[in-house]
């Protein structure tokens, strides 16, 4: 006989569905770079377009993080420490995801994509090479949207900031998301028992890429020739 449906069990849908669907709804709207048509094409324009885009994207990432289950429960200080340490990883995962359908092209925004030639002309060849390595990795894995949103939330929760006060709370956030990924893959791809592990093992390359990109932008900041908004500067400095 079927067990009686209790209120508790009736209220408890599969956790994986809850988390994945929540993260899918929390996905931000598309961003546009809107390069200044008055500026001549070249490295200065590309850098200033990217810095302006990054500043707006950080605002979006902060709003997005507030929608990650468990994140708002962290202390304000810990929310700041987490975001200051991982914002660029979250941003780059978004860039990698947008670039997946395009062969050898980095889609920084809907209206701002660079192929190798354009990246060279814009003085971004080294930076784009690093991002392309990440894109190729996710393309080889045939990353799905559900996996992307889970991985992005995990990148947030995977902060190793030494400034975090309540590490246990961050670990709980990480565990809940890890569990959601395991459950998702268990249900979606039972024939690929190592897929969740493979996805998680892309996080070191994501961090490495973020470090390279950070140094690129920090050099630009030190040169002082590219205008940077205050929030972008604040977040760059927090990582150095």
């Amino acid at each position: 006989a079927a067990p009686p449906i209790t209120t508790a069990s009736a209220k408890k849908p599969a956790p994986m569905n809850t988390m994945v669907s929540h993260l899918l709804v929390a996905e931000p709207e598309k961003l546009y770079a809107m390069p200044d048509p008055a500026l001549p094409e070249g490295p200065a324009k590309a850098a200033s377009t990217l810095c302006d885009l990054a500043d707006r994207e950080i605002v979006v990432i902060i709003s997005w993080a507030k929608n990650i289950p468990g994140f708002p429960a962290l202390s304000l200080a810990d929310q700041m420490s987490v975001l200051q340490s991982v914002w660029l990883e979250v941003l780059l995962l978004g860039v990698a995801w947008r670039s997946l359908p395009c062969e050898d092209e980095i889609v920084f925004a809907e209206d701002f994509a660079l192929d190798e030639e354009a990246a060279r002309a814009a003085g971004l060849l080294e930076l784009s090479g690093a991002v392309l390595q990440l894109v190729r990795k996710y393309r080889a894995l045939r990353l799905e949207r559900e996996e992307y949103v889970l991985l992005k939330a995990l990148a947030l929760a995977n902060s190793d900031s030494v400034h975090i006060e309540d590490m246990a709370a961050v670990q709980r956030l990480r565990d809940v998301l890890h569990e959601a990924l395991l459950e998702y893959e268990g249900a979606r791809r039972p024939e690929e028992p190592r897929r969740a592990g493979r996805l998680l093992l892309t996080l070191p390359l994501l961090r490495q890429t973020a470090t390279r990109v950070l140094h690129h932008f920090y050099s630009l900041k030190l040169e002082g020739r590219v205008p940077m908004h205050k929030l972008f500067l604040e977040m760059l400095e927090a990582m150095m």
Binding site: V25, A26, V59, I62, S63, K66, N67, P72, L76, A77, Q79, M80, L83, Q84, K230, L231, E234, M235, E237, A238
Partner: peptide
């Protein structure tokens, strides 16, 4: 917090989401 005042303000302000 003083050094990171924009992040601090953005985290504090508004509702957690508009979804």
């Amino acid at each position: 917090t003083e050094r990171h005042k924009i992040l601090h303000r953005l985290l504090q302000e508004g509702s957690p989401s508009d979804i």
